[in-house]
Structure formats: structure tokens, C-alpha cells
Amino acid sequence: MSDQASEIREVIFGTLQAALPQARPLSDDTHIIEDLGLDSVAVMDFVMEIEDKLDISVPLDKIAEVETLGDLVATVQRLKQAA
């Protein structure tokens, strides 16, 4: 795993932990909506934090394709590389 991927994972997991009402174990297989009970707006708000921390733009249609935290790490990594 590249340094960049692990750094992105760290940012995503850390941001998410801070946004959850109580601490939860998180992994690449965690389903963002089913496992964490976040609604559509909460997911968009959380992604907005990540956009700012990594200074990238994550279009909403890309978020719609994301199911697990692993998907999100991969999507953000692609966008970061393209930026």
C-alpha cells in the first residue's frame, strides 16, 4: 500500500470517527449507510470535510457509487492523483 493511500485512509477514518455520535470499529468493509446508520445528508457532510482536508473536489455522483469505506478510500485516491 502506498503512503498516500494510508494517509488518505487515516484522514477518512479519523474524520468519520469524529462525526459519529459514538466510537465504532471501522474497516475497509464497513458499509457507510447500512453499518453506520448515516443518512444521505450526513454522508455528504462527512465527504465535504474530507474534500477540505485533502483539498480536492468529490462530485456527488462519485459519492453515489460509494458503498464501503474501502470504496471511498479508492475514489478519493483517484481524485487526489488526478488533481
Partner: peptide, 21 residues
């Protein structure tokens, strides 16, 4: 179109997102 959200009622945040794009 590609869709980007900016923070509610924040012109600074809008400017930041336009800068990224």
C-alpha cells in the same frame, strides 16, 4: 453535470470550491 456542494451560506467556502474547479 458534475455536482459540488458548498457549506450553507458560506461565500468563502463557495470561492474555495470554485478555486479547486
Amino acid at each position: 453535470a458534475q455536482v459540488t456542494r458548498f457549506r450553507h451560506n458560506s461565500p468563502e467556502d463557495l470561492a474555495n470550491r470554485l478555486r479547486r474547479l
